[in-house]
Amino acid sequence: MALQRTPASLLPLLLTLLGLVLLQPSYGQSYMYQRFLRQHVDADETGGDDGYCNVMMQRRKMTSRQCKGFNTFIHEDLGNILSICSTTNIQCKNGQMNCHEGVVRVTDCRQTGSSRAPNCRYRARASTRRVVIACDGNPEVPVHFDR
């Protein structure tokens, strides 16, 4: 009896894995996509305070050699972030035309002036605001947080 229920219980897992495979970027963008996810996506949290920034910046390896001066964490599920890549192209800060904008919940982490690596300290600011991300690949995935 248990064996008959096992395949049905695996169906949601298999569908999720299939979806992830279909959303995988091409080999060339894989590094940049994974880096974007590591540095900017935290769908499970709401963020918002200095302690959050201090922990996440260290956990996501942005304080090892030197303190990253500013970073934004997006608090949306991956589907919402990926959907930004399907909006109209706009110009990026570097002049490229592969940027897209959307409104998301974020925590901005700004380094305090007196902190030094590896004990970097940050001030947090939580908000819902417009962000601009660069997307690349087929299908397009986020590869850079522009602003």
Score class of each variant (00 low, 15 high):
residue 98 N to Y: 05
residue 79 G to F: 04
residue 123 R to G: 00
residue 1 M to V: 03
residue 83 S to T: 01
residue 101 E to T: 13
residue 123 R to S: 10
residue 26 S to H: 11
residue 99 C to F: 09
residue 143 V to H: 01
residue 79 G to T: 04
residue 139 P to V: 02
residue 65 R to N: 14
residue 26 S to I: 03
residue 138 N to P: 00
residue 13 L to C: 13
residue 43 A to P: 05
residue 47 G to H: 03
residue 57 M to E: 10
residue 111 Q to A: 14
residue 80 N to P: 00
residue 54 N to H: 06
residue 144 H to L: 09
residue 135 C to S: 09
residue 16 T to G: 06
residue 58 Q to P: 00
residue 1 M to H: 02
residue 71 N to R: 06
residue 2 A to G: 14
residue 21 V to E: 03
residue 96 Q to D: 15
residue 140 E to S: 13
residue 22 L to F: 04
residue 53 C to F: 01
residue 144 H to G: 04
residue 46 T to H: 00
residue 84 I to Y: 06
residue 87 T to Q: 15
residue 32 M to R: 13
residue 131 V to L: 15
residue 40 H to E: 11
residue 86 S to A: 11
residue 7 P to G: 09
residue 78 L to G: 04
residue 38 R to S: 13
residue 103 V to K: 15
residue 112 T to N: 13
residue 28 G to D: 12
residue 46 T to C: 04
residue 118 P to S: 12
residue 56 M to L: 08
residue 138 N to Q: 11
residue 53 C to L: 05
residue 81 I to V: 15
residue 54 N to L: 01
residue 126 A to N: 10
residue 13 L to E: 06
residue 131 V to Y: 11
residue 91 Q to V: 15
residue 99 C to E: 05
residue 14 L to A: 14
residue 115 S to D: 04
residue 85 C to T: 05
residue 83 S to D: 14
residue 43 A to L: 03
residue 77 D to I: 10
residue 58 Q to H: 07
residue 136 D to S: 10
residue 107 T to A: 02
residue 145 F to T: 06
residue 98 N to I: 02
residue 139 P to R: 08
residue 27 Y to Q: 14
residue 120 C to F: 08
residue 96 Q to R: 14
residue 84 I to K: 11
residue 2 A to S: 10
residue 138 N to W: 07
residue 31 Y to K: 14
residue 25 P to N: 07
residue 57 M to A: 11
residue 87 T to V: 07
